[in-house]
Amino acid sequence: MARGTEALLLLSDGRLPAGGYAHSGGLESAIRMGRVNDIEDLKRFLTGRATTSGAVAAAFAAAACGACLGDRLEDVSVLDDEFQARTPSPALRQVSRTLGRQLLRAMTAIHPHQLQQRLPRRLNHPVAFGAAAAMLDLEPDDAARGVLHETLMGPAMAVVKLMSVDPFDAHRALAELVPLLDTIAGDAATYADADPATLPAFGAPLSDVVAEHHAAEEVRLFAS
């Protein structure tokens, strides 16, 4: 990963102005429903998010990056359909498309690239992330790592606004997950050129459930 490391850091940084900061990755709702009460719960929350939604997002980002690098743009649409089939919650579909759109909009300003005119109009976030990675000359493995990082950083950053926790503890939970994340990202990268139908589809039923409850809440701190 010698080449492109700086570009990967640019793309994966939560400070990239693409609107990600408004989302807690379901954590706000999980806290409200009493499922996350302390740092141990947070760690379990993050672990499950990594092995389900995170692993799926990472594989789709890798595959989308691979498709863009190989100029197989028709596969990008197929990947987007496949990702949607793996996202049964309408609320999460909406969030993913919004984040995907915001990322692509930000990229038009940050790093103009011919791909931007040729991509489908709407893309789910992991697919958009893979495409953005390709625009930055990153590899599928980078795309997988970056999107997985984002999947976990959202809730890990949101937690300090939602619960009484020590921010160091939240980062310690992340640090302890590093080996798991490396494994997941490595597996995900193997899907760079895979048939889109064979990509992982790991389900996270409580994420789907809490996302719908959250969307129906009158009062909330985070958009999701």
Binding site: G26, A30, R35, V36, D41, R44, F45, L46, T47, G48, R49, A50, T51, T52, S53, L180, G203, A204, P205, L206, S207, V210
Partner: peptide, 12 residues
């Protein structure tokens, strides 16, 4: 067997 299945984001 499946790490994370007991997560508040999966099946808790």
């Amino acid at each position: 067997r499946y790490q994370g299945w007991d997560s508040p984001s999966v099946a808790d």
